[in-house]
């Protein structure tokens, strides 16, 4: 590790000596300038602009009115539905993803299943947006294969039960298609971190498999599980394209509302739009902070 001061001293102490070595301290900072300029212009400033705008009225004066306006019933309900869908798809993704990962990692299934599942999860976790929406319309839409087969083979009309692919449950089931694989991808290394010897040690000490899971495996996995669930939450909370492709603008979730606001100022208040964005950042930010904290804890254990 080179100390900044030493590096600084070199060119001044021996000014006549040609600079043969790598550029030293003042020049060393130049190496990261492109990155910081980029991050500032295309990530930080745009975000900060919106955050600042959320606290301003159209004339640029400070106000908290925009945040108060977020409490309007249609905005609150948009946030609420977004949170519900994200929570449902995160919990569902976590549960089924954990089950799948555990099935493949921990038990004596044929060896080819694991790489197959991992590769498929890599694909499916990236198969989101409009193509995913189309796929689920073709599956569970009114004319979808599953809907049609259920009614022609079993006489079961899915849509008469109140199910609609354009609804809360439809969106949640669709989101699970990338949430479950994401959970599998993140949780598998954590499951691999469970040492075989822990199970064996617990057995020789008289523990049943259930006691092993309750007292050792689950507590060790818990931070990863919870952390990944929060990441899944943020993941679906910010999703636009899948929802838009499935429902158009019919479902009142916060990303769709913001999309409509950007396109046509449906809120009739630019700064309220900024506040809407700020609300999203706060929610995904909180879940990511929680993720990072829990992740650090789980890695400390598995060290």
């Amino acid at each position: 590790m080179e100390q900044p001061l030493e590096a600084l001293a070199l060119p001044t102490a021996q000014p006549s000596r040609p600079l043969r070595r790598l550029p030293t301290m003042p020049l060393a900072w130049l190496g990261v300038v492109p990155f910081f300029v980029f991050a500032l212009m295309f990530l930080l400033l745009p975000t900060l602009f919106l955050i600042a705008g959320a606290f301003q009225d159209p004339d640029g004066h400070f106000t908290l009115q925009n945040l108060r306006d977020l409490l309007a019933p249609n905005i609150i309900s948009a946030y609420w539905i977004s949170i519900e869908i994200s929570a449902a798809s995160a919990l569902g993704g976590a549960f089924f993803g954990a089950l799948l990962a555990a099935a493949v990692v921990l038990n004596g299934l044929p060896g080819w299943l694991r790489p197959t599942l991992m590769t498929f999860s890599g694909v499916a976790s990236n198969f989101a947006g409009l193509p995913l929406a189309f796929a689920f319309l073709a599956t569970l839409g009114r004319m979808g294969l599953v809907t049609v087969l259920l009614s022609s083979l079993l006489g079961f009309n899915l849509y008469r039960t109140g199910f609609n692919i354009l609804s809360f449950w439809g969106l949640t089931i669709t989101y699970l298609y990338f949430q479950i694989p994401l959970m599998v991808l993140i949780l598998t290394p954590a499951l691999d971190g469970l040492k075989k010897e822990w199970r064996e040690a617990s057995q020789t000490l008289g523990a049943t498999p259930w006691q092993y899971w309750r007292m050792i495996a689950f507590p060790v996995l818990w931070p990863s599980l919870l952390g990944t669930t929060l990441l899944l939450f943020a993941n679906s909370f910010g999703a636009v394209a899948t929802a838009y492709g499935l429902t158009g603008s019919t479902l009142n979730i916060v990303t769709i509302l913001l999309y409509a606001q950007i396109r046509g100022d449906v809120l009739h208040n630019q700064n309220l739009g900024y506040a809407l964005a700020l609300g999203m950042i706060v929610i995904t930010g909180l879940s990511n902070v929680a993720y990072i904290v829990l992740r650090t804890r789980s890695e400390r254990w598995l060290k």
């Binding site: 943020a234 910010g238 999309y259 964005a277 999203m280 950042i281």
Partner: peptide, 8 residues
Amino acid sequence: LVVPAIVI
């Protein structure tokens, strides 16, 4: 991962 694409 924190700031959604639509916000950016």
